[in-house]
């Protein structure tokens, strides 16, 4: 069991990295990677919401949608649950921990439209994961997202000082850099089979 969970974790974090191999959450990946601190904040916020959201949607699928044969409502239910959850998390964090709110606050509303969150919730159902597997998968996937985000932020900070041709300034060079990063992550593909 532990070995299986470790396999899921390594696969979700490195081999099938959410941003660099599966293209989930590319918008915040490009949008919030200007500075390392904001990348860290976004990574933490995503990790928090993704873990909670995937567990809640997992429970809803098992306790509501399947018993009542409402599987076709999956997309609608999930997106509403995620949107409500993000609001709830924002309010709870604001009340209980002003420090955490300061750090994560501005990123929380952005997360609703992060397709990685909905992506994890749907993938977990497609792979028919159990509760522990879901928890591991969501945490590893969001850790992988955070890792890619922080790495790209580091690259972008050095790019600020580099000479960039006029046509490549802005997002173009960032995408090429992300491509190189993705190429580097392909080196992990030998770690896990399948």
């Amino acid at each position: 069991m532990a070995g299986e969970l470790a396999l899921i974790a390594v696969s979700a974090m490195l081999v099938n990295n959410f941003v660099l191999a599966r293209f989930l959450g590319v918008c915040p990946f490009l949008g919030v990677s200007r500075k390392t601190e904001s990348a860290l904040g976004m990574g933490a916020a995503v990790m928090f919401v993704m873990t909670v959201a995937s567990l809640v949607t997992w429970l809803i699928q098992r306790l509501v949608l399947v018993p009542f044969h409402l599987e076709y409502l999956q997309t609608i239910t999930y997106i509403l649950v995620i949107a409500a959850l993000v609001q709830l998390v924002e309010m709870v964090v604001q009340k209980t921990s002003p420090v955490l709110y300061q750090a994560l606050g501005i990123f929380l509303p952005l997360i609703t439209t992060n397709c990685a969150i909905l992506g994890v919730a749907i993938l977990v159902q497609q792979k028919a994961y159990g509760f522990l597997e879901t928890l591991t998968f969501a945490m590893a996937a969001s850790a992988g997202f955070g890792l890619a985000l922080v790495l790209l932020a580091g690259i972008r900070e050095s790019l600020e000082l580099a000479f960039v041709p006029k046509a490549f300034q802005g997002n173009a060079i960032v995408l090429v850099a992300a491509g190189m990063l993705s190429l580097a992550f392909m080196g992990f593909s030998g770690l896990v089979r399948g």
Binding site: L20, A21, R22, F23, F168, G170, N171, A172, I173, V174, L175, V176, A177, A178, G179, M180, S182, L183, M186
Partner: peptide, 12 residues
């Protein structure tokens, strides 16, 4: 996957 990022960057 890396090709997608690179092609998109070049097209931009």
């Amino acid at each position: 996957p890396p090709g997608a990022f690179i092609v998109m960057g070049l097209m931009l």
